[in-house]
Design a protein around this nucleic acid. Structure first.
Lengths: 183, 183
DNA sequence: GAGGTACATGTCTGTTGTGACATGTCAAAC
DNA sequence: GTTTGACATGTCACAACAGACATGTACCTC
């Protein structure tokens, strides 16, 4: 039974970087720091925190108002994180809904196909703007999360720019196929 | 209950392009044509084919040796595919295990972090070679799957090249952080 | 002091995805 | 003739994920 459990390690890692936090804190941090890299729902996260506690990788450091539980990573947890980081090969999951649709665009009219691509390009432009805003809104410090977060941000920007160019290239290819003046 | 069900439409679309096929054929086609875009296990696919049949989107055109069932897409199935293609907004799932690990590389020694990045870069190089081989091995025809598959292939190549460059940039940034000679 | 909002945790149901296993047929090679 | 390998379908258990619902507390403002 090979389990990968990235959410578990994402929570563990974030907890280390935050130097302890509650589930609620963690959930917010998830969204702002790595919403573009990994997503987690509330029910997933709370469940995982309980499992991590049961496994001894984290512990409740203190309890606060409103039933708040401040979690802290144990030594075993730190070891588990390092092990996962360096010794567990990352599983590459390729799953792209837009690319999947591309395969079947031959099933609709050429102008509908081009319209689809143009729509995706416009949506991408909007996300590019949002990413720029996020970058401006973040208070980039000298801590690890800031440093590595900036590297991830750069990846996001490059990735989107590449995709944008590819959309334009696709539109050109579609137009050429539609008007076959070759030879 | 909003369901997206991309696998369902991937199977439907591939069945249209293949002009009918068995589950076994479909599974092989999945791997070679869009293994880089969408993955499907055998148990998922066979189950989905039965559900698609129950919903009237596909039907068993004929039965062959070894219990083989040749499936064919119905008019309703074709309608469903077109509807999904143009009217259901694609769900963008961002989940990148390598990028996730990047966030926590501050937890290991600088040389271990750089080693990790170099390993990923090497693995990427290997996949780039494999992609080139795949491209050479495919018999690119004039059909829709060939045309759109070529566009997807171009995306894959650009994506990998971009990522490769980013890895090098990350290594440069890591080296700079390690030796802070600035000012 | 009443009301709203942010804080805070948890459960439940259903869907999707994975890996292992079970079962059997047909064709070709030996 | 038997064995091997490709063909072919299916089930089962479990893990991962999503969304809705349930429940309550603390703090701030009016």
């Amino acid at each position: 039974m090979l389990r990968n459990m990235s959410l578990r390690h994402a929570a563990l890692g974030l907890l280390v970087e935050m130097d302890g936090a509650s589930g609620y804190d963690l959930l917010k941090m998830f969204e702002i720091t790595m919403g573009n890299v990994w997503q987690a729902t509330q029910s997933q996260l709370y469940g995982e925190l309980n499992r991590l506690t049961a496994d001894g990788f984290i512990e409740v450091a203190s309890e606060g108002p409103r039933g708040r539980k401040e979690y802290r990573v144990t030594d075993a947890g730190l070891g588990e994180l390092r092990h996962w980081l360096l010794e567990v090969p990352p599983k590459i999951v390729r799953r792209d809904e837009i690319l999947l649709r591309l395969f079947f665009l031959g099933q609709v009219e050429p102008d509908e196909a081009a319209g689809f691509v143009r729509e995706q390009a416009a949506a991408l432009d909007a996300r590019l703007v949002a990413l720029g805003e996020l970058e401006g809104a973040i208070d980039w410090g000298e801590d690890n999360l800031s440093f590595y977060g900036r590297l991830a941000m750069e990846y996001g920007k490059r990735s989107m720019a590449m995709r944008r160019e590819w959309y334009d290239w696709v539109l050109k290819e579609l137009a050429e196929r539609d008007t076959p003046e070759k030879r």
